[in-house]
Design a binder for these strands. Structure first.
Lengths: 151, 151
DNA sequence: GTACAACTTCAAGTATGCTTGAAGTCAAGT
DNA sequence: ACTTGACTTCAAGCATACTTGAAGTTGTAC
């Protein structure tokens, strides 16, 4: 065994199915080179990359978003510390935002449990349209059933 | 306008498309009754329920999971405080878990940014297989590229 | 009483993220 | 050399979560 991994080895080590690895390659997320007999061989660094992909998915990014993010990495040379740093810094802020959203949701839920207000119109959970709307295009996840400024 | 909402009204107030509402109904997530002319009419309380569904999706639950969770609510009578409480308490712990996972991921990512270790084998991000594995069936999101106990 | 938007069902289509299967090729051990 | 498991491509299939479109019906406003 040289410093090259077969798709099976990569699959076993990452827990990602071989079919998924081929799919990722097709999507441009990872790459490999071929043996004379046309079989894929992976650098060890691919394992890292795949871990990062999985982490990003965990955060809730789509493969397309991951692909976009990865495009900041130089494809033709080994990424440097700085390259990775740029990427992970970006993701960290996505992650921060996502965590904040979930924490806000948790707080609402907690209040609602405390006050039993799911049957009440004053409940934060059901009047959080403003906060959600203020967040922008995503996350309009909660909408009140009262229209504050209507007849 | 009585205390009954048309599908269009519900759609506008929740931000959920009418087609999605029909879909939810088919999935057994929500229900409605019909006019003499076979059009759907919704109780105001449906808005609440739909908000809860959206919140649950935000947390990362599938519609099936939401359906399962909602099945604890009595379908034939108006849910009480206690009923809602049971549901939201359950989700809260899911949410807590999810937040913990993301926070752990963020910490790893932060460390990795600090140390630039994405090229190093000592990196927490790439050696967190144990922690991830210990979490159970979900979330095996990070796998090291070193096999600690192999030749 | 008629116009017209809003509703109805049902079938098919879309996007994402893969998996499965068929049919064939490669690599490594004996 | 031969076997056998691992690999290859390509097409089709699947689950989730809907959307779209066709063809027809309802409800409200004038």
């Amino acid at each position: 065994m040289e410093d090259q991994l077969t798709i099976g080895e990569v699959s076993r080590r990452t827990g990602v199915a071989a079919s998924a690895l081929r799919f990722y390659e097709e999507m441009g997320l990872i790459d490999s080179h071929r043996t004379v007999g046309n079989q894929r061989r992976y650098d060890r660094s691919s394992i890292r990359l795949i871990s990062v992909i999985k982490a990003a998915q965990e955060v809730g990014l789509s493969l397309q978003q991951v692909a976009d993010a990865l495009s900041v990495l130089p494809h033709h040379r080994t990424p440097t510390k700085r390259d990775w740093s740029r990427l992970t810094t970006r993701w960290r802020s996505d992650l921060d935002k996502r965590i904040d959203e979930l924490v806000a949701l948790r707080d609402d839920l907690t209040n609602c449990i405390g006050c039993g207000c799911l049957s009440l119109r004053s409940c934060a959970l059901f009047n959080s349209g403003d906060r959600a709307a203020a967040k922008g295009s995503g996350a309009r996840y909660l909408v009140g059933d009262e229209r504050p400024q209507t007849p």
